[in-house]
Every structure is written in structure tokens, then in C-alpha cells.
Write a protein that binds this DNA or RNA. Structure first.
Lengths: 194, 194
DNA sequence: ATTTCTATTGAATGACCATTCAATATTATA
DNA sequence: TATAATATTGAATGGTCATTCAATAGAAAT
């Protein structure tokens, strides 16, 4: 059984790792640097995470958990509202709150590891399946959609959302950014309408 | 003016860098390792690429050039066929050839650098704008689409393609993969139909 | 043939890296 | 209180890293 200290320390270390990775990239964030940042010797970090790979895999779990946490409150909110309509969900998916919770640089850095690590790939896939299931659940409550293949619809919507986030991350100009967001939001609404 | 030797050596080094990055990731590919792989001292590499950052930025140019090269032959092909229809393009975008030319792991690793490096971001953005312009050009030749906003359409299509590639890279099962490809292909065709 | 420029070599640098270990402090258990 | 388990420290390790430099070899220009 893990002690309270152990749990807290682990979280502290992972959060420090995340913080520094946000600023300088995972590849430039060493165990020594995390230690210095948190005021502890590197050996303590290695006491809780025996190898760097283990540390990274914990950072990924941390990130994916956060990502899921962006969605779950929306689902709950919709549930108490008796699933009035899925627009709440779509609006929220394209909102700013998202970007505040998770750094895209760290996210895509970690994502790029799926191509050489099956466990990481499995974790990422699992998250994305969960997200799709969540959306399906929401769509299923909408009467206007009760003749549609909501699993398919959910898949199609997320592909737009994920493609949009990829593309939007290259756009600096605020006005242009908003413009593009509108386009992609409408693209999702079109899917819901047809 | 660059000598022939210089041009060849530079390409040799970048290709070696790409090769090793494919196998072990950019972050695990040192200048010494590239040197050993190519049978040359690290100092020779640094003679042509004075810093590691410069080396990386050249790798990125190399990758993005390759990516553009996937599309340009399709455009040419369509041009001599007198732009019969954009389906050729769509089919090609989802075909296997793509994956052979560029490693997704390296691609997304490099992509993740846009968040901390404006030059890299600019390069990525530029590529994506070019790709969209290319597609617009093709769509503009299709009479069935002559009342549509082809710039918008091109944007929407690419968002599906890019989201699809992101999602598909997590799927190992061949059958499932093909199934998903069909879904996303149809999603693009739906955009063209409406 | 001499000079100038480029290409290539190999050794050396100090910085930083992940990881190990033995010692000490703290906390929980008996 | 004694013992066992966990938490923390700090120093040390060997390896790898990007980068520097001076020396040599070769090609091109004069």
C-alpha cells in the first residue's frame, strides 16, 4: 500500500516534470533539473521513479487523465440538464478552457512516442476511445438524432475536432484563429444536421 | 556558392539523421551517433551544421519538402488528365504510399517543436497553407463545385484528413484500420457532395 | 607551382546525464 | 521502547553529449 507521503511526492514530481517540459520540452528536462526545481536531490526522484522511462510514462498518464477531465464535467453538466442538446458539448470542445489545462507542446511530444512504444500507444488509443464513447452517450440522448448511427457520428465529429486542433496550433493571428474555429464548429454542426 | 561536395554531404547527413530518428527518435539521435552511422567524425557534421539546432531545422525542411512531394505528383497527374474529378486526389490522400515516404514518429516529433520555436511553426504553417491551395486549385476545376466556396471546402477536407491521420496512427488492427479509412474517406466525399 | 579555399581528421573540452550507493533521518509497527 | 520500513540526503560513477581546435589533405584558382 502506498503511503500518503509517497502519493504526494509522486504527484509533486510529475507536476514539476510537466511544468518544466512545458517551458523547455520533455527532451530538455532532466531529472537533475526537476530536482533543482523542486528542491530535492535527483536520487529522491529516482527513489519514486526508478528510471526515466517510468517517469515519462507517468507523465503521460498524468496528461491523459487531465485530458479526460476536460470532458467529464461537460458530460455531468449535460446529464443534470437532461441532455438538452449536444451544442453545449461542441461549443465547449472548441473553447479556450481546453488549452489552459493541457499544454499542446507536451501533449504532441508525448503523442509522438506512440510510434516507438506500444504501451504509450495503447494508453493514447484508450483515451480516444473513451472520448468517443462519451460523445456517443450524449448524442444518443438527442431525439433529433435517434435514427442516426451515433457511434459513426461521434467518430466523425472527433476527427474534425482533432484535425482542427492540429491545424489551429499553427495559427498565431487571433482574428484568423477565431475565424477558423467558426469554420470547424460549423463543420461539426453540419454533421449533426444532416 | 555551395560546392557539389558540400551539397551532397549535407544531404547525406540529413538523411542519416532522419534514418536514425526513425529508429530511435530525434531526442536519442546524437551527432556522434550520426557520425558513426555514416562513418565520419562528428566534427565533420558540425562543419556543415554548426549547431544541433541548425541540424534539426534542416531535418524539418527535409521532411516538409518530402511531404509536399507526396502531393505535387498528384496535382500534375490531375492536370494532364484535365482535372476529371477530385476523387483521385482523395483516394491518394488516404493511400498507403503516404506512410512509406515519411515516418509519422519523426513528423509529430518535429511538429511538437512548433510550440517553442516560431521559425519551425512558420515552416509548418506554410506547408499546410500550400497543401490547401493545391487542393483548392483542383476543386476549382470541377464543374460540379463551381458554385461552392472551394477555399472553405479545401480547409474542411484537410481538417478531416489530418484528424484522420492523427487518429489512425493509434490503430494497429489492419481490418479496423481499413474500416476507419472508409469512414473518413466517405466523410470527405460527403463534403464534396453537399 | 604557389596560394587559397574547402574538406576531413582526431583528439580534447567541460557540461550534463541517468543511475548507484551508503549513510542518515523520519515515521509506522510491534 | 525497540524494530522495521520508508523517506531523504549527498557524494560519486562512468558515459555521452555538443562543441572546439589545430592539423592535415585535397581541389580550385592564380
Amino acid at each position: 500500500m502506498a503511503t500518503k507521503v509517497s502519493v504526494d511526492r509522486k504527484r509533486e514530481i510529475i507536476e514539476g516534470f510537466y511544468q518544466l517540459s512545458k517551458e523547455n520540452g520533455i527532451e530538455n528536462t532532466s531529472i537533475a533539473k526537476i530536482g533543482k526545481h523542486l528542491g530535492m536531490p535527483p536520487s529522491l526522484i529516482m527513489h519514486y521513479f526508478p528510471t526515466r522511462d517510468i517517469l515519462i510514462s507517468n507523465l503521460i498518464s498524468f496528461i491523459l487523465k487531465r485530458l479526460l477531465q476536460i470532458y467529464t464535467p461537460i458530460i455531468k453538466e449535460l446529464r443534470v440538464q437532461n441532455y438538452t442538446d449536444p451544442h453545449t458539448f461542441v461549443e465547449r470542445m472548441f473553447s479556450r478552457d481546453w488549452n489552459l489545462l493541457i499544454d499542446d507542446g507536451v501533449f504532441y511530444s508525448c503523442f509522438s512516442l506512440i510510434f516507438r512504444n506500444d504501451t504509450i500507444k495503447w494508453e493514447y488509443r484508450n483515451l480516444h476511445l473513451k472520448l468517443r464513447e462519451n460523445l456517443k452517450e450524449i448524442l444518443d440522448q438527442d431525439e433529433k438524432l435517434n435514427k442516426k448511427d451515433t457511434a459513426l457520428l461521434s467518430e466523425q465529429i472527433f476527427v474534425v475536432v482533432e484535425g482542427a486542433y492540429y491545424y489551429l496550433s499553427m495559427i498565431d493571428d487571433q482574428e484568423l484563429y477565431e475565424q477558423k474555429v467558426e469554420i470547424f464548429k460549423n463543420q461539426v454542426y453540419d454533421l449533426l444536421r444532416v
